[in-house]
Design a protein around this nucleic acid. Sequence first.
DNA 1: AATCTGCATATCAAAATTGGTATGTGCATC
DNA 2: GATGCACATACCAATTTTGATATGCAGATT
Lengths: 309, 309
Amino acid sequence: MQNLANRLQLRDFRLVQAIADTGQLALAAERLAVTQPAASRLLARLESVIGAPLFIRHPKGMTPTPIGETLARNANSLLRSLDQTLNETGAAVSGRAGTVRVGSVTGGAVGFVVPAVQNLKKITSGADIHVDVAPSDVLINGLLHGEYDFVLSRIPAGTDPRQFSVKRGRVEVIRILVRRDHPLTRFGPLKPKYLEGWEWVIQAPHTPMRQAVEEVFYSSGISLPSEIVNTTSLLVMIGYLASTDAIAPITREVADLVAPDGSEGRFVALDLEEPIIINPYHLISLKTHTLSPLAIRLRDLIFEGFSTS
Amino acid sequence: MQNLANRLQLRDFRLVQAIADTGQLALAAERLAVTQPAASRLLARLESVIGAPLFIRHPKGMTPTPIGETLARNANSLLRSLDQTLNETGAAVSGRAGTVRVGSVTGGAVGFVVPAVQNLKKITSGADIHVDVAPSDVLINGLLHGEYDFVLSRIPAGTDPRQFSVKRGRVEVIRILVRRDHPLTRFGPLKPKYLEGWEWVIQAPHTPMRQAVEEVFYSSGISLPSEIVNTTSLLVMIGYLASTDAIAPITREVADLVAPDGSEGRFVALDLEEPIIINPYHLISLKTHTLSPLAIRLRDLIFEGFSTS
DNA sequence: AATCTGCATATCAAAATTGGTATGTGCATC
DNA sequence: GATGCACATACCAATTTTGATATGCAGATT
């Protein structure tokens, strides 16, 4: 188990992954394009190197032992890294700019990632850019699993921040979106008590925005809205607001998109007397992972956006 | 360049990393513990697989090409991941890390699980330890459903013991808890007949302890207590005993906690002339379930506790 | 021009890996 | 108790890998 490092091969990880995925040695063997006995021998050798069984054999297949599970987990991220390596190297060889994968929370995507990507496109050609939009916990998880080069996200509670390299971002300020002829538009900056009694369109419970809004209700001593439509879809929100007097909290970035101040659109974004602020999101990457030049470029572009908007 | 995946090996990454680090093939070769020509051949093969030169040779060494740099960067994170994998797996194999879930009956939790967990913590890092306390039937059920690695429990009637691997545990001895100025404290070891006539605080009917106590009443020919408070809550028990002359049977382990011998607390634990003994509980695990090394460690520690106390 | 440094190539031998076919074995299910 | 499924083992052949030594070659240095 000591000079184990040199006795392990990529193949072993592929095998573990395949068995863990399929639950059957024969299927795993097929995936590796070898016969079942060959796979059996590979596994036997691997288990002897590790010094412990990795899978328990039942009559109908195999399931991982706890050790096998940890190994399978690691095999997954290892092989994903390898995959990325191959992509990047392949891109470099054929003269393309490469690949960058970025995850973002909604507000960040609209406000920062999209313009940064547009800028990046101007100065590179053949770059392969992936943008995911997801909640913070999903993003952080993906980052840890090597699915993203970096993410624009909050740091969820309970996450060890030491493993990340963080560039601090801007806070998200909430405004209230309503249709143009909504009664609330007659007031100036909204007091909390005005928020009571309306139907709401808002993100699911436990999302940062929902929490930030609920916090205001609690601290103002007014009761939570009883009529709520839960959605993350802007389309649904707009459709709903257009035909009812419902109100919806949105970030400033989204507000600028949907209802720019001074415009004559169908919606109006109202400010609150005391602004509601969501936990800020940051540019987060893994300390252990060195970013590709392309990823660095995109990250820097996004970061520039923080200060210039 | 397509079926490249299978032609790359961990070794190749080590080589690239070593060359990038040292800038010289001979030094890199040394690091990989091979001769310079061997390293040269490795590199040549790798470059032919990739289809492009990775390093430019000059008279004083090598420097990476852009592609080589890409590869070196990825090699770094890849090998770091590998290292992490090895650590984690090694920790799992040796039982320094991992997850263990254990369920226990009350007496076992206080007497054995807690000290064993404390000992286990001394030799682990980052281990994930879960302890549940519940009645035996719940524990066994949980064990069968894979919720626990093992349990410290009795074997309920009607359970097929063949599916379990059982390490016999210790018997639970009952003492009688009363407040310090209780009349019974004037006697030496209690005879059964002294137990008659008092108000009792005791667990619900059909629990092992209740059964053990009732058994004594029957066999001694004295009548069952007529005034009974049923509770499993230590808090209720103590509150009740403090203000009345009620008496309560408790296990020795709990007694050591609440009323250590020789202490001057508010309560006294009395022994019986003929000790009352409850059905013993055992260390029970599923035959079909392989325990993680960490779980085995904890189980062994608990088992040691059986014999040394 | 001689030399030195550092990488590449040639050649050979040994060993390990790889992969296949055939067959054994254990456990459930019928 | 027979059958089937899934994994393990045995055995054999071929290829590949691995590594060492000796040597070649090119650019730099003196």
